[in-house]
Amino acid sequence: MSTETDLLDFARGPALEAALIIMVFGIFWRLVGVLALRRPRDLSEPRVRHAWLGGVKTIFTRMWPRREFRPRILHWEAVSYLFHFGLAVVILGLVPHILLIRDITGLSWPGLPTGVITFAAGVSLISLLALLAHRATHPVLRQISNFDDYFSWLLVFTPLLTGLMAYYHLGGRYEDLLALHMLSAELLLAWLPFSKLAHTVLFAFSRGVTGTIYSRRGAQT
């Protein structure tokens, strides 16, 4: 009996702490390692002043593909959005998650009904499976995918699945499932800075930089 609660205690305590420390320090390291490199001043005469505004704009406009590109990419973009929305609802809407975030950051907001959460988790899981099948079958994605792509997929999929299992007491004792859920989520947090999952932070920087460069030239971003 005591081993199981020990595992949950470990997941709630030291494992969580370690995961958060690795995540924060890892992201910091990755960002500084990149942003501290040389940034030579562009000496060409800008066509547009305050081009950084264009950079900020691009962070938002790149959320959705341009009309010209849609016919070939919109369907999978939509599936990807389903996954991202579902995941966001689950992470930010479930009351126990909010309580955890409140403990760590002091921020809090009202939760969503569990029916909504379950639905969002289901949508997320199904779209993740579809995206995996897409990655494993599309010639381009097969060519460019590596360990990071599949491992990161697994680390996102597992906490979603174990979370649902724990909530509905499927396939084991609640404490075990909860511990498994927390540990898998912690693995995800610790893996994030070293992997493609760092795009959660990097997207704003790379979009912003390109947006600024192109705006400066008076070009579309």
């Binding site: 940034r39 593909p65 381009v140 994605l141 995918s145 590596n146 760092a198 990097l202 920087f205 790379s206």
Partner: peptide, 19 residues
Amino acid sequence: GATAALYMESCVHCGQCAE
């Protein structure tokens, strides 16, 4: 520089560029 490095770090292997 920082810009090119940022690009190198950011790819999520979505494959849209091919399309």
